[in-house]
């Protein structure tokens, strides 16, 4: 239970309880506003009834031809508000917009290979591993290779009727972070 609403520029003043977290990066003003200035319909926050921000998602639409897709750049929920299904709610909305507004073929996101909880959650939402991106997270948090690499997980949308964005053994397909934008 929370207010799901568009991410606004002034939310940057209030997202500290979410961003003071080892897994959540705080970027420059340009970063956030560049998303809002181009894909405001792919950026949302979840807000508690008392007005405190609980989590947010920033996404975009990119790629050409059959690679045109919605991409979840950041999705994060404050520790206090985890296990409430907030991420699910935000993901559903991103998928809806990617499908109905952008007519994208699929939605994708990157997740630390080590983050099994997140990986399972996304699998539960219909995502599957498309490929493994080597060294995507740089040196990581000291958790070894699985902490440094990312899985690119994809979920087909209605336009991908042939389910081209799903493949078996995606975990075994390795690409270097340099080849990924």
């Amino acid at each position: 239970m929370s207010v799901l609403r568009p991410f606004r520029a002034t939310d940057l003043f209030r997202f500290n309880n979410i961003n003071l977290d080892p897994w959540t990066e705080t970027y420059s003003i340009s970063f956030y506003l560049s998303y809002l200035s181009r894909w405001p319909d792919m950026c949302y926050v979840q807000e508690a009834p008392n007005g405190r921000l609980m989590g947010y998602v920033l996404g975009k639409a990119e790629g050409g031809g059959q690679e045109f897709h919605g991409h979840v750049t950041a999705i994060t929920v404050s520790p206090q508000y985890r296990r409430l299904g907030l991420a699910r709610g935000m993901m559903r909305l991103i998928e809806q917009i990617s499908d109905e507004v952008y007519h994208a073929f699929f939605v994708d996101l990157f997740v630390r290979c080590q983050n099994k909880i997140a990986k399972n959650m996304y699998q539960g939402l219909g995502y599957s591993v498309w490929r493994r991106i080597i060294g995507y997270y740089g040196t990581g948090m000291g958790g070894g290779k699985d902490d440094e690499d990312a899985f690119d997980m994809r979920k087909p949308l209605s336009r991908d009727a042939a389910r081209r964005s799903v493949r078996a053994n995606g975990e075994l397909v390795h690409v270097s972070a340099h080849n990924v934008t």
């Binding site: 520029a9 420059s28 003003i29 340009s30 506003l33 560049s34 809002l36 200035s37 181009r38």
Partner: peptide, 15 residues
């Protein structure tokens, strides 16, 4: 500089 640029971008992308 950054917010100013982004205001420009919002005009350019018509948001």
């Amino acid at each position: 500089t950054e917010t100013g640029e982004m205001i420009t971008k919002a005009f350019q992308y018509e948001k």
